[in-house]
């Protein structure tokens, strides 16, 4: 069984926010006004922010300064706090370890957003809007199986959304393999952020395959999980700055 995993090498990350932008256009996350963004309503499935976040770190004295940044997709936890609290199974983990979000099921109670220790979940406070002609350039992909609605599909007001490791890309790659009449290989698909990463800091693949890049990297001494103490067993791995 495939076990999808993302590895982010913080040593290589230059905090260019390319992943954040690629994700926005791949997944049709609407841009909000600067005022709303200031009010904490911005939606960034893949966020880039400085660490530590709450206490001004000692960044040294000019010119010897250093700032640490982290990029944060969904952790796709094995013991996901969001999945545990969802009252209607709008969010669920599939057998390959991806935490899905079904926009057609979500009742907007926002328990998952409260329960997630990583803050990867976002709520649609208003109807999503795109400026001028931007709406014409939306990604037409969406994942719709048995009445569920996932992936880049335009979200209705009042539901929760989050990073899905680009599940629609996975579905597409599977379809492609099927059409060509061959078996699907785990290296046929990567999420948009991995594809776009400027510093080649992101890796994606099957953790079950001992020869895959992510498996090799997960054995690194620098490999860490974010907020390991939360008990969520996150899957997205970080390679710490040495």
């Amino acid at each position: 069984m495939t076990d999808w995993c993302m590895v982010i090498d913080l040593e290589k990350c230059v905090a260019c926010q390319g992943c954040s932008i690629a994700c926005r256009f791949e997944n049709n996350t609407p841009a909000v006004s600067p005022q709303e963004s200031k009010n904490g309503r911005a939606i960034r499935w893949n966020d880039v922010f400085p660490l530590p976040l709450h206490f001004a770190p000692d960044q040294g004295e000019y010119p010897n300064v250093k700032t640490h940044y982290i990029t944060r997709p969904c952790m796709h936890c094995k013991n996901a706090p969001c999945v545990k609290v969802c009252p209607v199974q709008a969010t669920f983990t599939d057998e390959e370890g991806i935490v899905h979000q079904n926009y057609n099921r979500c009742i907007g109670c926002r328990f998952c957003t409260v329960a997630c220790p990583y803050g990867v979940r976002y709520f649609n406070w208003f109807k999503p809007e795109w400026e001028e002609t931007l709406a014409e350039y939306r990604n037409p992909d969406q994942l719709s199986v048995n009445g569920s609605l996932e992936g880049p599909a335009v979200r209705p007001t009042g539901v929760v959304e989050k990073c899905t490791y680009c599940v629609h890309r996975l579905a597409k790659a599977r379809e492609q393999a099927k059409v060509e009449g061959r078996d699907f290989r785990p290296d046929e698909y990567v999420p948009a952020c991995v594809q776009t990463c400027t510093g080649k800091a992101r890796f994606f693949g099957d953790l079950d395959d001992p020869d895959s890049t992510v498996s090799q990297l997960s054995k690194s001494l620098r490999a860490i999980h974010l907020l390991e103490d939360s008990g969520a067993h996150p899957k997205t791995l970080y390679l710490a700055e040495g």
Partner: peptide, 25 residues
């Protein structure tokens, strides 16, 4: 609770698809 919900029109989902493991249920 209904006023706090983003989708009050889907309230009935808690009965149709309710997860017994969820504290909210």
């Amino acid at each position: 609770i209904i006023m706090d919900m983003g989708r009050p029109d889907r309230l009935v989902f808690t009965l149709l698809y309710g997860r017994l493991q969820a504290p909210l249920l």
